[in-house]
Amino acid sequence: MSNLFKRIFSGVIYITLFLSAILFSEESYVILIGLFGFICIWEFSKMIQLKSPASYIFFGLALFLMLKRPESYAITGILIITILSSCYLIFQLLRKKEITYANERFKLGLMIRYLIFSMCFLVLLPFYKSEYNPFIMICILLLIWVNDSFAFLVGKNFGKRKLFVSVSPKKTVEGFVGGLGFALLAAYIISLYNTDFTLINWLIIAVIISVIGTLGDLVESKFKRKANIKDSGNIMPGHGGILDRLDSLLFAAPFVYLYINFII
C-alpha cells in the first residue's frame, strides 16, 4: 500500500506540474520540457554509459535553434532523420536484433537521434501554425495517458497472450488492444470539444500515439534490459525515472508532429 501511495502521489505531482506548465505560458512549457530533456539525457547517458557532456550542449543548441526558426527547412531534415532512426529501432526490436553502441561516437549519435531530436519535437508539438496552442498538447497528453492507463488495466485483468515477452514480460496483446480502443474513444470525445482537427484526424492521432507509443515503451525496455536495470532512474517514487514516464510520448512525438504539420 505504501508503494501504491508513493506511485499515486508522485503521479499527481507529475501531471499537475505538466498541465500547469502547459497552461501557464509557452515559456513555462519550454522550460519544463527542457528540464525534463536534461534529466532524460542524464538517465540515458547512465543507461548506455555515455561519458561525454556534449549531449547536454547539443540539446541546448538544437532546442534554441529549432524554436528560433520553426519554419526552417533544417527542421524537416531533422524530422526525416528522427523518423528513419525510430523506424530502424522498431525494426531492431521486432527482429530481436541487438542494439549496439561500441564507442563514444556511436553512443552520442544514438543519444542525438533517439532522445535529443525527439525531445525537441515534443517541445514543438503545441506550436501549430506558428502559434502556441496549449490545448493541442493537453489533448495529446490525455490520449497517451488514456492509452497507457487502460493498457495496464485491461492487461492486468484480462491479459493472457504476451505482446513481446523477451523485452517486457508484463505487456499483453489484450492490454495493447484495450489501450488502443479506449484511446480511440477518448479521441472521439476530444473531437466533440476541440475543433483544431476533425474527428478522423483525432482518431488517426490516437492510433499513432497508441501504436508508436507502445513501440517506444518497448524500445526503452530493450535499452534497459541491455543495461540490466529495471528503471531509468528513481526521481519519481513508484514510477522510476523521467525517461520511464516520457518514453511513449517521446517516441511518438516526431510522428505526431509529422502528421499534424505535413499531412493534415
Rank of each mutant, 00 (worst) to 15 (best):
K222G: 08
V207R: 02
G216D: 06
G238P: 13
I229P: 08
L215K: 10
K226H: 13
K224H: 06
H239T: 03
I229W: 02
E220C: 11
I212A: 02
L215E: 14
I212F: 07
D217W: 05
I204R: 02
A206I: 07
L218T: 11
S232T: 15
V219T: 01
R225L: 12
L215T: 08
I208S: 09
K224P: 05
I208C: 04
K224S: 04
I205Q: 15
D231S: 00
I205H: 12
L218G: 12
A227Q: 01
L203T: 11
K226C: 04
K230I: 05
G216A: 12
R225T: 15
I209N: 09
T214M: 09
K222D: 02
I208R: 02
I235G: 13
G238L: 04
I212D: 00
K222N: 09
E220G: 08
K226F: 01
S232H: 01
I235N: 08
D217V: 05
I212Q: 00
I235M: 13
I235P: 10
V207N: 01
L203H: 05
D217H: 07
D231I: 01
L203M: 07
S210K: 07
N228W: 02
F223S: 03
K226Q: 15
N228H: 09
G233F: 12
I229S: 06
A206T: 07
L218V: 11
K226R: 08
I212S: 03
V207G: 06
P237L: 09
V207M: 03
S221N: 07
L203D: 07
T214Q: 13
R225M: 07
M236N: 15
K230L: 04
I235K: 10
P237E: 01
A206D: 04
K222V: 05
N234P: 08
N228I: 05
G233M: 09
G213L: 08
G238M: 12
K222A: 10
N234K: 14
R225C: 13
H239M: 03
G238C: 11
G238Q: 09
G216Y: 02
L218F: 10
I205M: 14
S221V: 09
I229L: 04
K222L: 11
M236C: 15
V207L: 02
F223D: 00
G216R: 03
I212T: 02
K224T: 10
L215D: 12
L215H: 09
F223E: 06
